[in-house]
């Protein structure tokens, strides 16, 4: 993926505050709230800055309430930023100009644009008119999307009768008919089984490669992000904590390489402690976290074990990396 000269997304000093009504529990508090409501200011996004190139696949990672979705909604023009600069394909999203809306698409795992009681094809046809898509282009794109996602039969049934996965596939068709240059995906695979996650993921990757569209994704499933996005932005507490590849993030947070081997017999504990940190030992499997520069030496020792088999060296799982990252941030904030 070679990002082109003009960036797809430019964000500088972006902030979003929400005013949230709050009151204590109980009847007295409820009555008081009638007369005078109390509000607290919540900083959902604080001073966010980044640039995304055209054609990139970027994942937003962060815990619940980190500001990922708020950021995505500001990028797609749904929310007005409280302050800061924001350009998407040269447009100010919140102005929601027609030309801007024609170049983007937003797919939300928990919202649907398909009409509930009508077949999905009706919504496709509706989008053809609304987005003013040329009839030939429409036919061609629909054929391509329908065959890629295998929804030829599904799209003729009322949407309410579809499974979650089938519905999401139809949502993707509806979202891509106008050939957007930027695709925002907010939790697209939420609640889906692994097979369906894989097929959606594969489709998005393929779409990005073949059409050069910029893809921006938020997902709770780290696997989605890890498999799909060469670049990740970690957002926590409304701020950017990391920007780079998953490998780079893993190296920074968990530099140790996870090394595992099966053997008939393991060395004694004190000897293992010299090799690295023992994560798991037993059931025919030994798992160690090893300093990167010591990996070659440790591998030699492990392969020399009696009955050594299935030696694997890998990065720590992303889930653990993220957990550790957020724990550190929380700790750092408490310390500050």
């Amino acid at each position: 993926m070679v990002p082109s000269a003009s960036p797809a997304v430019e964000v500088r000093g972006l902030c979003k505050q929400f005013r949230v009504a709050r009151r204590e529990a109980g009847l007295g508090a409820a009555l008081r709230a009638l007369v005078r409501r109390e509000y607290t200011q919540v900083d959902a996004v604080k001073q966010l800055s980044f640039v995304l190139g055209a054609g990139e696949r970027v994942g937003f990672l962060g815990p619940n309430g980190a500001g990922k979705t708020t950021t995505l909604k500001m990028l797609s023009g749904l929310l007005y930023p409280s302050s800061g600069e924001l350009r998407v394909m040269g447009h100010v999203p919140a102005e929601r100009r027609s030309e801007f809306l024609r170049t983007i698409s937003l797919v939300m795992g928990q919202k649907r644009q398909l009409s509930w009681d009508l077949p999905a094809v009706d919504t496709f046809e509706f989008n053809r008119v609304v987005f003013d898509i040329d009839a030939g282009d429409y036919r061609r794109r629909l054929d391509e999307l329908v065959s890629l996602l295998a929804v030829g039969e599904v799209m003729r049934r009322p949407v309410r009768q579809l499974s979650l996965g089938e519905r999401m596939k139809c949502e993707l068709v509806a979202a891509l008919l106008h050939a957007p240059q930027i695709l925002f995906l907010d939790e697209p695979t939420i609640g889906m089984d692994v097979a369906m996650q894989l097929s959606i993921r594969e489709f998005v990757r393929r779409y990005n490669v073949e059409h050069g569209a910029t893809v921006i994704l938020t997902s709770h499933y780290m696997e989605d992000v890890a498999a799909l996005c060469p670049r990740i932005l970690v957002i926590d507490g409304g701020q950017l904590r990391f920007d780079g590849s998953i490998e780079a993030l893993t190296r920074r947070i968990r530099p140790l390489r996870r090394t595992s081997v099966g053997a008939d017999e393991y060395p004694p504990a004190e000897q293992l402690a010299e090799l690295g940190h023992v994560v798991e030992r037993g059931a025919g499997r030994l798992v160690l976290d090893v300093e990167p520069e010591r990996v070659p030496a440790v591998v030699q020792v492990l392969l020399a074990l009696p009955g050594a088999r299935e030696l694997v060296v890998q990065d720590a799982p992303l889930e653990e990396v993220m957990r550790e990252l957020f724990r550190r941030e929380a700790g750092a904030e408490r310390g500050a």
Binding site: L78, L106, K111
Partner: peptide, 12 residues
């Protein structure tokens, strides 16, 4: 409900 988001994403 936030369903307005869907309408807001259309160029109409």
């Amino acid at each position: 409900s936030g369903d307005l988001s869907v309408l807001l994403m259309r160029p109409v």
